[in-house]
Every structure is written in structure tokens, then in C-alpha cells.
Design a protein around this nucleic acid. Sequence first.
DNA 1: CTGATCTACAACCATTTGGTTGTACGATAG
DNA 2: CTATCGTACAACCAAATGGTTGTAGATCAG
Lengths: 110, 110
Amino acid sequence: MVVDQLRETELDRLFQAFADSTRRDIVRRVTVGEFSVSGLAALYAMSFAAVQKHVAVLERASLVTKEKRGRAQIVRGNHEGLQKARRLLDEYEHIWRQRAARMADILAEG
Amino acid sequence: MVVDQLRETELDRLFQAFADSTRRDIVRRVTVGEFSVSGLAALYAMSFAAVQKHVAVLERASLVTKEKRGRAQIVRGNHEGLQKARRLLDEYEHIWRQRAARMADILAEG
DNA sequence: CTGATCTACAACCATTTGGTTGTACGATAG
DNA sequence: CTATCGTACAACCAAATGGTTGTAGATCAG
């Protein structure tokens, strides 16, 4: 087997990254505007270190990039990861529609 | 806050369910055809109980339904969960495009 | 009835996850 | 120079995850 191990673990990370409401919120915010890590941390009822970890998870999943600016680390949304996740769900949707079409054919035949 | 706690935990479960390659494979298979739990278990190099747990995770996420048929439990794909996940990613994509449009406007002004 | 099959579920285990506090260090402001 | 800010990272902890084995209840075949 080993279908495409790289892509599989990549998708694992992507969906894992989406599987937390704080991280989904971070993705939304940094897509619209720029935030430093501490700027983000100020928004949530958890420690700076916790938010730092969430950002790291998003970065590993290619949903976010960091760029150093002075002493701050600016977090920005990264379209790449989002597109990959979307592409997979589109693919599933396609499979689903093919199935629906087949079922319609069977009904038409009968 | 408490934005929409129900929906948030629902999304947590959905994306968590997608964050495992075995589960993604199960979703694909049961969308195309019908499988009993043991029928699925035969496909993977892990115990029946492990596959059973994966199916339970998918069921909790509304990505799959089970229906008893004789002594077998038939697993089928459920469009509902897939649509919800897709809708969220579409929403994010929309936010992204709005941002891109705004940036284009700014460039046009300048 | 008996045995095989399919499922459910509990108990256990190692690893990961999501959080904490504490320490250290570079960059900036005064 | 010194104090503060923003960050990084280690160590720790409780809970969840992904796997295992074992036991037990239904259902079906012979």
C-alpha cells in the first residue's frame, strides 16, 4: 500500500489543526488582518504559551506563516493549507455526487 | 463569549474525524458502497475493535450512519457531516477572497 | 441444539494533546 | 544602561487518542 504517506500525514495535520475552535478563530483573524503572537494571545482566556503552541500547530499545517518584525512575530493566513483541505472535501463531494448520479440511473432503468 | 458552543464542538468532532487517514479511507469507501463493520475491518492491518472505534468516531461526527441488518451492522456515508465541514471551509475561502479583493482595491487607489 | 460469525464494550497501555508555570534571551523604550 | 516587551522553550500535568486483548450477547447455518 503506502498510498501517499506524505500527503496523508499532511492531511492529518491539516484537519487536526482545524479540529480546535481557538485555532479556527486564529485562522479567521489572521486571514483578515495581521496579528503578533502576543496580539493573538490577548484575545483568549489562556496563557501566552498556549496560544504560541496553537500557532505552531497551524504553522506546521501550512495554515499560517510567521514573519519576524522587530521583536514581534507577525502571523498571517496562508492560503495553501486551506486550499488543500478544501480540495479533499471537494473530492469527497464529487464521489458523493457520482454515487447519487448512479442511483438516479438505476432508478431510471427500473 | 460562547459564540455557538454546540456548533463549535460539532466542528471539533468533524475535523477531528477527518484527521486520520484510516477514517478518511472509510468515509470514501462507505460513500461508494455498503460495508459491514467487519467488512471494513478486513481492509486494514488493525484489530476489529480498532476499526469499530474509528466507525464510532465517524458516527459521532455525522459522517457515517449505521443500520442493523441481521447480525451485521451496515455502515453508510452520511452527506450531512461532509456538507458542514465543506461549508466552513467555503466560508474561510470567502473571507480570503474578500481580503484579496480589498487588497486589489487598495492597489487600484494608489 | 451447537458452533461460527458479527458486534459491543470494558480494561489496559503508550503516546499525543492542550493546558500550565518558569526560565532565558533578543529587541526596544526611556 | 536598565527595565520592559515579545518570544522561545523546557518541564510538568490531566485528559484524550489510537491501539490492544478479552469477554459476552445476538444472530445465523447446519
